[in-house]
């Protein structure tokens, strides 16, 4: 019962973080800031979802398998995020600056 409640909480939190990541991707002004949104918010969302489902797993092995996905996703994000940022910089994409009021 308590596990179910925790799972509900974690799945909803995951959905919120994924939504925030998408919102950042749509709203943020340049590729660098969008990368921040995706690399960080989406990974946190995935972590919440994985933790929530691991609580419901039938065996320890399944739970560990679910949790093993998270570090892989983190590695992918860090590596791909770096590649994209470097490519943008090499393409001469100038970081967005806020306007003084």
């Amino acid at each position: 019962m308590l596990l179910d409640a925790l799972t509900t909480l974690l799945l909803l939190a995951g959905a919120v973080f994924f939504f925030a990541g998408t919102l950042g991707l749509l709203r943020f002004p340049d590729v660098y800031t969008r990368l921040h949104a995706l690399a960080k918010a989406d990974n946190l969302g995935l972590g919440c979802v994985l933790a929530g489902l691991a609580l419901q797993a039938d065996s320890l092995a399944v739970a560990l398998k679910l949790l093993a996905i998270w570090p892989l996703a983190l590695i992918a994000s860090a590596a791909v995020g770096y590649s994209i940022a470097r490519r943008a910089e090499r393409l001469g994409v100038v970081p967005w600056q806020e306007q003084d009021q």
Binding site: L38, A73, R87, V93
Partner: peptide, 21 residues
């Protein structure tokens, strides 16, 4: 920019994996 298009690669790693589990 072409760099923006590369963001799709990140999406499948996180959102795609999340949908599958």
């Amino acid at each position: 920019t072409p760099a923006d298009r590369m963001l799709a690669a990140l999406l499948f790693g996180s959102t795609g994996t999340g949908i599958l589990v």
